[in-house]
Simulated assay, not measured.
Amino acid sequence: MTGATGRVALVTGASSGIGAATARLLAARGMRVVVNYLHSGQAAEEVVADIEAAGGQAMAVQADVRETAAVETMVERVGSAWGGIDVLVHNALTPYAIKPFQEMTWEELGGKLDDEMRAAFVVTKAVLPAMTEQGWGRLIYLGTGLSRRPRAGMSALGTAKAALTQFARYLAQELGPQGITVNVVEPGPVADTKISQVLDDEQRQQQVAATPLGRLARPDDVAQAVAFYADEDNAFMTGTTAAVNGGMSMY
């Protein structure tokens, strides 16, 4: 990653899965990485230890990304240590219901929409002042292929992530003149993540069979796409969505 040394990246929900893989990769490419977590403090510290053992720099910081005060405190702590955040990878996944629409309450659907957008809003608001001041920044949001390709029981997550993707496009249009790029990474099914645990073996085999590359994504596959968007040299892509799904869905 050309010129990445010293850039500060905040990865939300980085104690496991895609977030942890992304934190490790960005650190390996020279960024100082903030490993945000909500409950899994020990796992987050293990990610930091892995990064430091490999010669990188990282710190674990607890914050509920839906809470303005908690996020502002986190950003202030990072600012005191390292300065402003240059790269935001918003990966944290808030809880959601898995059930048919006819069994779903408004609290389950509307609550997920509110959590999803509140978290994106709060974290983005907190990191933008430093980015706009320096005229450079990278905002990268983790979406899901479910926002385009429905699957039974997943309307709450898919609808909320579709809103997130459209939010990112509006940010891209508004923030471009300030030197800030905004992009979305939309994984298909990813093995070794919390979401993957809702699939049984038969469903997993069906998804593999529907994937031209012959396997499900791994967290590292998704991290590579995130790192591509975070790269110093990737200066002219904004408002785009990268589908990391092995060809399962093409758009």
Rank of each mutant, 00 (worst) to 15 (best):
V61K: 05
V222M: 05
A23V: 10
L25I: 00
Q42C: 01
G110V: 10
R204A: 11
R169D: 05
L26E: 00
A70D: 12
L199E: 07
A160Q: 02
A172Y: 05
V33R: 01
L216D: 05
V34F: 03
L93H: 08
A163G: 15
M131H: 10
I180K: 07
R29D: 12
T73H: 13
W106C: 03
T105R: 09
A81G: 06
A225H: 09
F236N: 07
A160E: 02
Q206R: 15
T193M: 10
L157T: 00
A81M: 14
L213W: 11
L157M: 11
S196R: 10
T94M: 13
L157G: 00
L113S: 00
Q102D: 14
V123S: 12
L26H: 01
V47K: 02
T124F: 08
L88S: 06
T240D: 14
G143E: 05
R29S: 03
R218F: 06
S155K: 00
H90T: 01
R66E: 05
V190F: 02
S249C: 05
V48N: 08
Y96M: 10
A70K: 11
T181V: 02
T105C: 03
A27T: 07
S40N: 15
K99L: 14
M237A: 13
D220H: 00
P129Q: 03
L26F: 01
S40W: 02
M248E: 13
A209R: 11
E52T: 15
G19Y: 05
A53I: 08
T181S: 15
L164F: 04
V190H: 01
A53M: 06
G214P: 10
L213K: 06
D200R: 06
F236I: 09
Y141E: 03
T165N: 05
I51W: 09
T68Q: 14
A242M: 14
R169Q: 12
G6K: 08
A14I: 02
R24D: 07
I140L: 12
G135T: 08
L199R: 10
Q197N: 05
P129N: 05
V190M: 04
M74T: 03
G239R: 05
D231A: 15
A162L: 10
A156T: 02
R151V: 04
A191Y: 02
I85W: 04
A120Y: 08
A21F: 01
A152D: 12
R149I: 09
L146G: 13
D220Q: 12
R77G: 13
Y96Q: 05
M59P: 00
A92M: 07
V35R: 08
Y96T: 04
T124I: 06
R29G: 15
G145W: 01
